[in-house]
């Protein structure tokens, strides 16, 4: 089928998508790079001047940067741990025979379809609010002091909210992988007297490794850029306690109008994402090829 004519046709069919994506990458990226080397504030139009690496120096020495870097990694790591472990448990549970499997599957899946601003505001107000929230009521029922989640543990609270959104994703993918597990192997192991824990460790878990890899990879891409949940719950605060890199750059560029500094932050965010991507790809590359 690969005649010369069809090759040319194929190239023509692919090129719009490639060219658009190429433009989408190159144009704004080079602008970000260029702006990051300028002294450029939107409040002082016409005052742009060359700054060299000054923005980067400022960005790296800003205490908010190290806080944001830590928060970014903690957010990604925390959510990954909760969703992968929780996802495996939920998937194992849903794989058991019980009545109403279809409906429970839909219930578990539901949070994934809730838009970030809705889930964050619902959790913030109706559950975590120290006066009127469901958690505050539960605390009082058990004779405890209500806890002001978003003030006293802002990052952990946001991790909880985001984990709730992503748990269904992990569970659904792991469940799908689980269902392709060869049952004969399982039965053979059972007959040989392997305990459930051993069967899980030596048969189920290795079988799931590819799916776990995919879950980690895809979630990391999205989790590095968490934004809306922070914006509507804590606004990055108190202080910088829940500011991640994405939110820090947003504040610098769109709230303080410091285009130069924000762009430098953007470049750093891109570099960080690439480091994480390379690291991940290498760590799990074998897994994906298999």
């Amino acid at each position: 089928m690969s005649t010369k004519a069809s090759r040319t046709a194929a190239r023509l069919m692919i090129s719009p998508a490639v060219l658009l994506l190429l433009a989408w990458m190159i144009v704004p990226l080079s602008m970000t790079l260029y702006f990051s080397l300028l002294r450029y504030n939107l409040l002082m139009p016409g005052m742009e001047s060359w700054a060299g690496f000054e923005n980067y120096r400022y960005f790296f020495t800003d205490p908010a940067f190290s806080a944001a870097l830590f928060n970014t990694l903690a957010l990604v790591g925390g959510v990954l741990v909760i969703t992968v472990i929780g996802g495996i448990l939920v998937a194992l549970l849903l794989d058991q025979p019980f009545w109403g499997q279809g409906i429970v599957r839909l219930l578990v899946l539901a949070p994934f379809f809730v838009m970030p601003t809705v889930s964050a505001l619902v959790w913030k107000n109706m559950f975590m609010n120290p006066v009127n929230g469901v958690f505050a009521w539960l605390a009082r029922v058990f004779g405890l002091q209500p806890y002001d989640f978003l003030t006293q543990a802002p990052l952990a609270s946001i991790i909880g909210i985001v984990a709730w959104q992503w748990l269904p994703f992990a569970a659904l993918i792991l469940l799908t992988a689980l269902q392709s597990l060869d049952s004969e192997q399982m039965e053979a192991a059972e007959m040989d007297g392997a305990s459930p824990l051993k069967r899980f460790w030596f048969i189920t878990l290795p079988h799931l490794s590819r799916a776990i890899t995919v879950v980690i990879l895809i979630q990391t891409i999205f989790l590095l850029s968490i934004f809306a949940e922070i914006l509507v719950t804590t606004n990055g605060g108190p202080g910088t306690a829940s500011t991640n890199l994405t939110f820090l750059v947003y504040m610098q560029s769109l709230l303080q109008f410091d285009v130069g500094l924000g762009s430098a932050g953007g470049v750093v965010a891109i570099i960080l994402a690439n480091i994480v991507a390379i690291f991940l790809m290498r760590m799990i590359g074998k897994n994906l090829d298999a």
Partner: peptide, 17 residues
């Protein structure tokens, strides 16, 4: 790999454009 590009990395230019 273009999906790996964090949106915040191009926020400023897109906003200005």
């Amino acid at each position: 790999s273009t999906k790996m590009l964090p949106p915040v990395g191009v926020l400023v230019p897109i906003y200005l454009l």
